[in-house]
């Protein structure tokens, strides 16, 4: 079964068509890359998947259940987690607290962040696990703002992972990372691959072509091409370009 599916998603902002018609079906455990030029509609599409933008037409299904137009927190509760292109961490809080504050059961339990963060070990254990998964096991006590850029990006993923999502949406996870940061992220994704359904917008083609099971190319608010990295590289113009190098 498809874990996440979008059918004929159409979004307009006033007079402007932002997504003409986007279809996507991602199987359980698949790592699906989304690429496309700037302004193609990739982030808007993510916003539709995660409930931040309600489509004018079309549907989003999570494991067969229609979640179109639900609020972001209801969609998150159903199991779609995301990281953002721009980081959204609480700078003054420790890495562990950041993860903990992302836990749905934590948020449901109390709004008194300080008390809750100091207390419940069950949440802490779960959060530590997520930190360990992204290689931040020994950095839980460090304030988010004191972490390196690469660690902050990893922390963002940990925040998403702690929610035990069924689908993880990553918006440009490699942006701003140096080459060793990208390698570390690639290793992390490789570990998560198969266990988690991942949809990732990414500009780093080498990253995407080496990791993705399939890739959708979005342009002009539509999927203009889709296939395995190998299939996409068969195109003659692609061979002539930098993309051809990753064959």
């Amino acid at each position: 079964m498809n874990m996440i599916e979008a059918a004929a998603v159409h979004v307009r902002f006033g007079d402007r068509v932002v997504l003409e018609s986007v279809d996507l079906a991602v199987a359980e455990g698949e790592f699906h890359g989304v690429m496309g030029p700037n302004g193609a509609g990739k982030t808007t599409f993510f916003n539709v998947l995660t409930g931040r933008v309600k489509p004018n037409r079309g549907r989003v299904l999570l494991a067969g259940e229609d979640v179109t137009g639900l609020s972001p927190h209801r969609i998150a509760a159903k199991g779609i987690a995301r990281s953002f292109q721009i980081m959204t961490l609480f700078d003054e809080f420790s890495a562990l607290d950041n993860v903990m504050m992302g836990l749905p059961e934590f948020r449901a339990r109390s709004h008194d962040v300080a008390r809750a963060a100091a207390g419940d070990s069950r949440f802490a254990a779960k959060s530590s696990e997520a930190l360990a998964a992204v290689g931040l096991a020994d950095k839980g006590d460090i304030r988010a703002k004191d972490l390196s850029y690469g660690d902050r990006r990893a922390l963002e993923i940990a925040v998403a992972l702690a929610q035990a999502p069924r689908v993880l949406c990553l918006d440009e996870p490699t942006s701003g990372l140096g080459s060793d940061g990208v390698q570390r992220l690639a290793a992390l994704i490789a570990r998560l691959k198969g266990r988690l359904t991942i949809v990732a917008i990414e500009h780093d083609m080498e990253f995407l072509f080496s990791l993705a099971d399939r890739i959708s190319v979005i342009h002009w608010g539509q999927v203009v091409a889709r296939g395995t990295p190998h299939e996409l590289q068969q195109n003659e113009w692609v061979r002539r370009s930098n993309l051809g190098k990753f064959a």
Partner: peptide, 26 residues
């Protein structure tokens, strides 16, 4: 409901990124 005429006004073609091939196939 779906456009019958698609008018592409000087789309940005770039040899490096390889999107041309996808655009032409589209």
């Amino acid at each position: 409901r779906t456009p019958l005429v698609h008018l592409f006004d000087e789309p940005q073609f770039n040899l490096q990124d390889g999107y041309i091939g996808f655009m032409l196939d589209f």
